[in-house]
Amino acid sequence: MIPRSFEYHAPQSVSEAIELLQKYGDTARLLAGGHSLIPMMKIRFAEPEHLVDLGKVAELRGIREQGKELRIGAMTTENDLIWSTLVQQKCPLLVEAARLIGDPQVRYKGTLGGDISHGDPGNDHPAIMLALGASFVLVGSNGERVVAADDFFVDTYVTALEPDEVLTEIRVPVLAKNTGWCYAKLKRKIGDFATAAAAVVLTMKGDTVKEVAIALTNAGATAFRAREAEDSLRGKKFDDAAIAEAARLVMSICDPAEDLRGDVEYKTAMTGEMTRRALRTARDRAI
């Protein structure tokens, strides 16, 4: 349970971090909160030769409101999110999700950016970002680009990040009026990854669904949107039949990996169940 030797780098700025990534190529890994990477290094599943710690890059922390967006530095921790009055008011879904991640100590270290850029389908923020329609600022040697969450998650541990790019900021739209939200997560215990989880953002117009986003955690190679289920709800009356149909459509596209949490059938069923619960709660909060 001891990591292999590596060189440690603590850049003070994003540009310095990018230079290091360029210099060391795929022998380098970025270190954010470290609560995925360091345990992997201790069991020697991950053996980077260079570790580029973003912990001293001050510009990567902080939460601000700009226009109709929250702009959140990638190194903002889960507890920062939970305790931010701004996030509580403008995007409580992020708070709900962060509270379901890890345990208290993990949340002091674990970062929003680290959770997203790790590309693990079991991480929670990817689905939240998809459901919120967030976008990510990626900075590399060729400058800055903004990538929509929808275009970011490519495959397990594979994202749109280029090897020399750093995720610097997460842009989250402030929730619209009459919009409810929910992250329903089933897990075995505190600190566990999701057996299944669904993020829902739902805007109502009277009894009718005006807009909806459903995104799923740990139900496939990446977090993903359940678009057919969303389509089935959009413009429809929100009732039991609509929920049931949405859950059915969600389950039809689940492709979870079997593990000790359950087999494919159970995880698929639970993804449907979490979708139902998230939809109902979101609807209650939308009104």
């Binding site: 075995r188 057996t195 929920i243 049931a244 159970y266 069923a269």
Partner: peptide, 21 residues
């Protein structure tokens, strides 16, 4: 009696499904 195991019992009994499915 993990959730997974108990659910399998529910499923065997056919009580794991909502009435609308």
């Amino acid at each position: 009696h993990s959730a997974y195991r108990v659910w399998q019992q529910c499923k065997a009994l056919g009580i794991d499904k909502h009435a609308d499915t």
